[in-house]
Design a protein around this nucleic acid. Structure first.
Length: 594
DNA sequence: GCCGTTTTCGGCCCGACTGTTTTCAGTCG
């Protein structure tokens, strides 16, 4: 294994900074966008982009050409990018913070710098308090107020991000309350739907997008203010309303005529990047797409679409599922008729990762089994934590032996579902597991995962993970990156090497469906499946109710372009167990690959 | 800075809103 490269996150941060600096420098918007688009491609890549750049292959990523490849190479080899050095000398770092304030952007920040010498939030505050901002052309008293309010908010909670994001389940919960409230206040023929990143089933959500068709749009927009969840409405007209909930989530309601429902839903489902790419492609065909319709240059007429299917059809595309609308190749696939038939929740036949009171779960084996059967599952693996889990929840080898007996006994007692005796075994820092092979060999299903020592470095973590993958008794690696959405970055690991090892050995990788995790993340799950890795979607339920979390895992799988064939637990248990027995009978073959 | 069923140069989505103007630039999604 080679020396770890500069992480993709670090490369992406550098490109974003350079984009910000170029924007301050007055570069044309497309150049700035090129940096931001490249930063996203780098962040999403599952292989080391620095390593790609060394091989001259970074240009294979979308949005990265020769110029950016050279800059990435400079960063990887010298630790810095010359252009960034030059621009940093020109624009003080505090100025970038100024561009982040609401109502201020790069152009205004640049004006403030050149005309008032403002180079930090502190100097901005002084100037605003002295009412000097209004001396700059284009700025006035309202902007001064807004700036001071924003600075006040930062003072009161310096760690809070400017735009807090909430996890998908919470966003859906609030969104559905708003839907119900609005529907109760409107006439029966009005239609209101959730759109935006909620509809795309993203991991976290910045604001809630609602779309509606109504014959009385102004009344509908006003009724938003009457909902008990709404703290205040910042604007309302016949086109819609913007508001904020008491919980601090932004709400955007847009309204159009019923015949435009398809256009509106398509537009407000996004993503912004999907729409931008869609429109650019449409322009080449002489069509101009907006939320109100499709303008045809040839006829000068604007066609409206009552359904989204019509929108895509009018543009020569197959219908694209919302989860795929991220500008990750879906337009080319739709044009070529090569979109995947995405997995659905009903394809799932069993859950292979669950906990009970034996470790940190809250229900008994029997309770979990009955709840799984209630969901229509054919099988459930009981996989409590292992001998070194800590938190007072260790399962000693002796306890695991008793647990295996208990699972077997319960299995004979309960009809209609197959219970599997398993464990979620810790992968220790040196790559070994915390039960003896003799004991692991008695289990039907072995989940292995990292719960300690996240900071051992990329090389050590990759070797640790691959050692577990090559262990002949390990069936699946759980939550392979360790990330917690909006809370914890993934640990440093070479996923490309992990995927190669998993594909070679037949060890599966999990999409953990816990809504805090959704790990593997969508882009990585897609890369893993492409590399030939079999994916398992697990709830990781710690109580009967959270078996329902499976839906978030399926959502992630759909965002990863996965079909039912890509996911192991869409199959009957007998089909899963056969290749496993072979592997266990010939572990050497398995570890070396065949 | 990227990119090519018009193109290796000249394009590169679309509209709403705000605050400032007096017809529009900047910001935002």
């Amino acid at each position: 294994m080679t020396e770890p490269e500069l992480s993709n996150a670090a490369v992406a941060d550098a490109l974003e900074e350079l984009g910000d600096l170029y924007e301050l420098d007055g570069a044309i918007v497309h150049r700035v966008l090129a940096y931001r688009s490249a930063a996203r491609a780098v962040r999403d890549a599952s292989v080391s982009v620095a390593a790609l750049a060394r091989e001259g292959r970074a240009t294979e990523l979308p949005g990265i050409g020769n110029t950016l490849q050279e800059k990435i190479l400079a960063l990887a080899t010298t630790g810095t990018i010359p252009a960034a050095e030059k621009l940093r000398a020109k624009f003080p770092p505090g100025l970038v913070a100024v561009t982040r304030l609401p109502g201020l952007g790069a152009k205004r920040a640049r004006l403030l710098h050149s005309e008032l010498g403002i180079d930090s939030l502190e100097k901005l505050r002084e100037a605003a308090l002295a009412q000097r901002l209004r001396s700059v052309r284009g700025l006035g008293p309202k902007i001064e107020e807004r700036v001071l309010a924003a600075l006040e908010a930062i003072d009161s909670d310096p760690t809070a991000p400017a735009t807090p994001r909430v996890l998908l389940p919470r966003a859906i919960g609030v969104g559905e309350e708003l839907l119900a409230g609005l529907r109760a206040l409107t006439t029966a023929d009005d239609r209101i739907e959730l759109a935006g990143s909620i509809r795309r089933q993203a991991g976290s959500i910045k604001d809630i997008d609602l779309i509606a068709t109504s014959t009385r749009p102004t009344a509908l927009a006003r009724s938003l203010a009457k909902l008990e969840q709404i703290e205040h409405v910042s604007s309302a007209g016949k086109a819609g309303a913007r508001a904020r909930t008491h919980s601090g989530i932004g709400v955007d309601l847009r309204i159009a005529a019923p015949r435009q429902l398809g256009n509106l839903l398509q537009h407000f489902t996004g993503s912004g990047r999907h729409n931008a790419a869609l429109r650019e492609a449409a322009v080449r065909r002489g069509l101009h797409v907006s939320e109100y319709g499709i303008l045809d240059d040839a006829t000068g007429a604007t066609d409206t679409c009552a359904s989204e299917h019509e929108v895509y059809e009018r543009l020569g595309l197959a219908y694209i599922e919302p989860e795929l609308r991220e500008d990750r190749g879906e337009l080319d696939a739709a044009r070529a008729g090569e979109l995947p038939r995405l997995i659905e929740l009903t394809d799932i036949r069993g859950d292979l990762h669950s906990h009970t009171i034996a470790s940190d779960g809250h229900n008994t084996i029997e309770e979990m089994a009955l709840a799984a059967r209630e969901r229509g599952y054919e099988y459930l693996a009981i996989t409590d934590h292992s001998a070194s889990h800590g938190f007072g929840n260790d399962v000693s080898p002796e306890q695991l032996r008793r647990q295996i007996e208990l699972v077997r006994e319960t299995n004979t007692r309960i009809d209609g579902i197959e219970l599997l005796a398993g464990s979620e075994v810790n992968i220790l820092p040196d790559g070994t597991l915390d039960y003896e092979d003799e004991l692991l060999g008695q289990l039907d299903w072995v989940v292995a995962s990292v719960h300690t020592s996240f900071g051992i470095g990329e090389r050590a973590m990759t070797e640790r993970m691959i050692a577990a993958i090559e262990h002949p008794l390990v069936d699946v690696i759980a939550h392979p990156t360790g990330r917690l959405i909006e809370r914890r970055q993934p640990y440093a690991i070479d996923l490309d090497a992990v995927f190669a090892a998993a594909a070679r050995t037949g060890t599966m990788l999990e999409i953990n469906a816990n809504p805090d995790r959704r790990d593997l993340p969508d882009v990585h799950a897609r890369a893993a499946a492409r590399a030939g890795v079999m994916i398992v979607i697990d709830s990781d339920a710690h109580r009967t109710r959270t078996l329902e979390n499976m839906r978030w895992g399926v959502a992630t799988a759909r965002r990863a372009w996965l079909t039912a064939e890509d996911v192991a637990n869409t199959r009957p248990w007998q089909e899963l167990t056969r290749p496993r027995s072979d592997a266990r009978a010939h572990p050497q073959t398995r570890a070396r690959g065949t």
